[in-house]
Design a protein around this nucleic acid. Sequence first.
DNA 1: GCCGGAAAATAACATGAGTAAGTCCGCACC
DNA 2: GGTGCGGACTTACTCATGTTATTTTCCGGC
Lengths: 261, 261
Amino acid sequence: MMKWMKQLAEDVLGKRLARLSELTESDMLALRASSLGSIRSMDARSDLIREGDPTRAVFLIVSGWAARYKMLEDGRRQTVALLLPGDLCDLNNNFLSEMDHSIGTLTPVRYVEISHRVVERLSQEYPRIATALWIQLLATVSIQREWVVNIGQRTALERIGHLFCELCVRLQLVGLANTSGFDMPITQQDIADAAGLTSVHINRTLKEMRAQHLIVLENRSVKIPDFDALAQASLFTPAYLHLRPASQSSPAPPGLGLTAP
Amino acid sequence: MMKWMKQLAEDVLGKRLARLSELTESDMLALRASSLGSIRSMDARSDLIREGDPTRAVFLIVSGWAARYKMLEDGRRQTVALLLPGDLCDLNNNFLSEMDHSIGTLTPVRYVEISHRVVERLSQEYPRIATALWIQLLATVSIQREWVVNIGQRTALERIGHLFCELCVRLQLVGLANTSGFDMPITQQDIADAAGLTSVHINRTLKEMRAQHLIVLENRSVKIPDFDALAQASLFTPAYLHLRPASQSSPAPPGLGLTAP
DNA sequence: GCCGGAAAATAACATGAGTAAGTCCGCACC
DNA sequence: GGTGCGGACTTACTCATGTTATTTTCCGGC
């Protein structure tokens, strides 16, 4: 009963890293054997860590969605990154003394905290894992840059479409989406915070996207009838995600329940 | 005549790193002795490296301003980072195969290309330099996040004010500014590209900022009569730059001509 | 000192996005 | 089975910012 739980964190991490850099069987076995720590749970709408807190271990999101966000003194809030299952947060932030932003859950989240020591040991013994971790960090930074472009230049429709495309591709890495859509357990207000728009305008724009048959929304999921059409309408090109071409490896085993906590 | 030129790159780098992490005399001497490579020059308005190019060495900006930018297919352009003297670009990007964005000069720029080998050697022999380089990278990412907030949430006046505050602080690190202002050798269009606004609106907003006595513009320089007032109007707090408190070390030697090529 | 081009400044107008104030619906809880 | 609440969805109105076009200023080269 708990056996699959124990492997869950290592599996989701391996799956992600393998799409960024080549890993061998022994690398994957090392990850599986690394026993990253116990899986913790957190309710929706609470903070994993807050701006000003001393930096802690590396977080690995096992299931659920979270947001890296900053707030201005007057209450305005901007999400600067969405954290999905398999995402590793704050690799090497141990060099900084305190957090300059917060991480809050959007849904119930299961996660593990990995000590910097474990990361270091894995990196030293398995150079390909070290490389994969590096690429993961650089890809994260690249996504951050793309968000600047997204918010700075794209129209509301393009912004939301681009976000959906990005989420769809990223969720596919851990078997939580396919090209025709994905479950989206967050509110329109959450989308607004990420897109730098208001929830009213998100709503307006989603309506317009539905009218153009770019997306279909039903019970908390986004269906994308024609991914290429959405990508084109949003000026989305996936190069910035720095993914290797998908391998012919087995698809995600069904029923792992990565989203249901 | 060329002697100060030869030390320029090492000096400007040492000055920057020392404000992010503690460096000893021997670290500084190591940097001075590292002979990073020859200083190259590039005209204003040309690309140091383009999206799609294979990744090369690390760049160190010695003098002049450059911009990291991305373009959309239809010509819209967004600057995602401004590169100032002392800035190190693309540390460790050797793990990625190709550039996902371009770097273009805004003014004439002098720079050095540092091979990844030299960076590695310095890091291995001088652990404090390695730490400083790490912090430099993490601070860059933090600035990237802050730009998302800036563009996503702040009004035009706040955005430009925030950008000026950031530039003023960052330029002080290499002796190119003090709290009362700095030379700004770029155009209003360049500011527009960085702020995600149009040049017309930049112009309007600068006029408003002058009317409110937040800034004074004269011959390509920004004077800030009251830094705290500008910071408050822009919701600027410098924590995200992750600087150590300024040491009482000597101010920049005058006449180094870091901006004049 | 004049010329030419680029940048700054300005103006008139268009529009995308924010604000404020709701209604409606589904769902958890009593 | 009613009640309360949060989220989706609307509408009317306002305003910040974009668009397009023209004029003025600045500055370097001859």
